[in-house]
Amino acid sequence: MAKKENKKSLLDTLGESQVWKSIIRSGIPRTRRQRMHAILGSVFLHLHPARLPKHAVKVGYTWCMGGLSFFLFVNLTITGILLMFYYRPTVEYAYTDIIDLAEQVPLGIMRELHRWAAHSMVLVVWLHMLRVFMTGSYKPPREFNWGVGVLLMTLTMFLSFTGYLLPWDQLAIWAVTVGSNMARAHPFIGHEGPGASLLAIGDINLVHIGSDVRFALIGGRFVGEATLLRFYVIHCIAVPFIMMIFMAVHFWRIRKDGGISGPL
């Protein structure tokens, strides 16, 4: 009996210690008040409200897909940073570095974790969209946040697409060749797009293979060294950075638009 009391008080002693209380002010979350404080007092958890309607915690309603999308984004950021320690974005080294990642680097599944998480993220984001559509959660006042979500989905796919080039194998270069050649056909600013040949001074075409939007995207006339570096930077820094801004807006607006949708 005495032993049991001792154990209980160990956690309590910990919860009442100065160190614990300096980190989590409300102590061990036991009472209703403490539990609400555990959410409100945490910079990460206070993305959530302290209390929710009952249906909002049911997996059958939310499918957990929004949360999983965010989890996968964090997961991809971490594995991505780890991969950057070993990967050099040059035509000379890229491919061999990828092989080394599987064969020489300890825990040789880091690239697998990154790649499969990326594929999953595309799927999970789609399913999140399906759930939001099927519950009609885009309806006022959540119209704007649905739009932000669509942009996030587009960015997710673009992120995945730019990452596809980095192993510098046949799969990568041809998928990106085909993809980036679509930019060639952009009206007016792609050199094979409608209207591009109208932008000319006399005989000199302003929009040609060395000056159009595709050239700016891949940094050359065809997918090569410059493209690899550009896609690497876009993939590792530019798009994740933009996504984080949109994610902040997305999460903020969930709360500001009245929290999770539900029947009235």
């Binding site: 000056s211 700016a216 940094g219 050359g220 006339r221 090569g224 060294e225 410059a226």
Partner: peptide, 9 residues
């Protein structure tokens, strides 16, 4: 800035 002046092709 996005348009390089020299290409290594």
């Amino acid at each position: 800035f996005l348009f390089p002046n020299v290409l290594f092709e």
